[in-house]
Simulated assay, not measured.
Amino acid sequence: MRSFSVFLSGLWLCACAAHASMPEYQTFPAEGQRLMLWVASAHGRSDPELVAAKRLAKHGVEVWSLDPASAYFLPQVASSMDTLPVSDMAAWLRAAQETGKQVTVFAVARAAVPVLRAAALLGPAQRSRLCIMLMHPNLYTTAEPLAEPDYLDPGELSGLRVRVLQPRHSAAMPWLSDLLGDLARHGAIVSDVVLENLREGYWAREAPTGFEISESRRMDVMLLRQLDTWGCK
């Protein structure tokens, strides 16, 4: 596939991503001018995420879908995301931009850490052409119950457009404004969308509500709406 050959030219994932058919890295080509880099959480890629990626491609949004924990043979725990080679991730972002398409990164939970750190390695002009959507991002150094969280330093984010998608029924909801403020202090151009009646990881929960099941089947619709209304072009 064209997009996968571009991906390899960025030297991303070492030998782990030698074939497009490998489960930790999959591509869904599309002829449109938008490209989404989908970075799964440390828990891996779920079936609803895979279905949404396929549907986005049918709507003209090419998707490069990455399961980073599996790609690097890491334990499926949040802290594994902190050990990913950020230079590899930055090379992936550059390779995506070389396609000439508008690149949006969609990162779930702790995957926000390597994605933002990689964006900080880009030059100002490259950052200004990149959009990042963070689904209930975990950027905490530590998170103590009922305590105001401390945030990791992602690096220089000036000019980077970041949108946080935050489920309403999340323990992190009270700190949303603090998170946005911290990202802005690092130079990011921030916005947020609250996802009503949903919990974190609603598409992969063991006991989802009926509404969560319905919304998990419409992830592609939700993401298309964000792409269209955000105006990140």
Rank of each mutant, 00 (worst) to 15 (best):
K54M: 13
R225M: 13
V162C: 10
R199T: 12
L223H: 03
R199Q: 12
S5L: 11
A40N: 01
P174F: 02
K58W: 13
V51Q: 14
A171M: 10
T83Q: 14
F28D: 01
E156P: 10
A30G: 01
P137Y: 02
R168N: 01
A184P: 04
V105D: 01
L84R: 03
M22K: 08
V103D: 09
R45P: 09
V115R: 05
M89N: 09
I213R: 14
S70I: 06
L66H: 08
R2L: 12
R163S: 06
A78N: 08
L176A: 07
R2T: 13
S3L: 15
F7S: 08
V108A: 10
E200W: 09
A42Q: 02
Q126W: 06
R217N: 11
P208V: 03
E212N: 10
M1A: 13
K233F: 10
G181C: 06
H186I: 11
S65N: 02
D67S: 02
G32T: 09
D228W: 04
P145V: 07
V194I: 15
L180C: 11
V86K: 04
M219E: 04
M222Y: 07
S170I: 01
I132Y: 03
S216R: 03
L13C: 11
E212Y: 07
A184I: 04
P208N: 09
W38Y: 05
V162N: 08
W175T: 07
W175L: 05
V221M: 09
V63E: 01
V113P: 07
L227Y: 06
A147V: 11
T229G: 05
S3D: 14
H186S: 02
G201Y: 04
C131G: 15
L130S: 09
L8H: 01
L134Q: 04
L13A: 15
V39G: 04
P29D: 15
G187P: 02
I189N: 13
L35D: 05
G32I: 09
D82Y: 13
P48I: 11
L198P: 00
F28H: 14
R34N: 01
L227C: 08
N197F: 11
Q226T: 04
L152E: 12
S158Q: 14
A184D: 13
A172N: 10
V194D: 05
A52F: 08
T141V: 15
V115A: 07
S70E: 14
V221K: 02
Y72V: 00
D228P: 00
L84A: 05
L160I: 06
K101W: 12
A95L: 07
L134S: 02
S41M: 00
D67C: 01
R129V: 05
D67E: 06
L66F: 13
A111H: 00
M36Q: 07
W64F: 13
E98A: 14
S214H: 11
G159Y: 09
K54L: 12
R161E: 12
L224K: 07
E49V: 11
R199C: 02
R45S: 06
M1F: 05
G10Y: 03
V61L: 10
M22E: 10
A40Y: 00
L50V: 09
E144R: 13
M1W: 01
M1N: 05
M219R: 09
L227S: 08
R185I: 06
M81E: 07
S177F: 04
N138G: 08
S80A: 14
P149H: 05
A30Y: 06
G44M: 00
D228I: 10
V221H: 12
A204H: 05
G32M: 09
V39M: 13
L146Y: 13
P114R: 03
H19E: 10
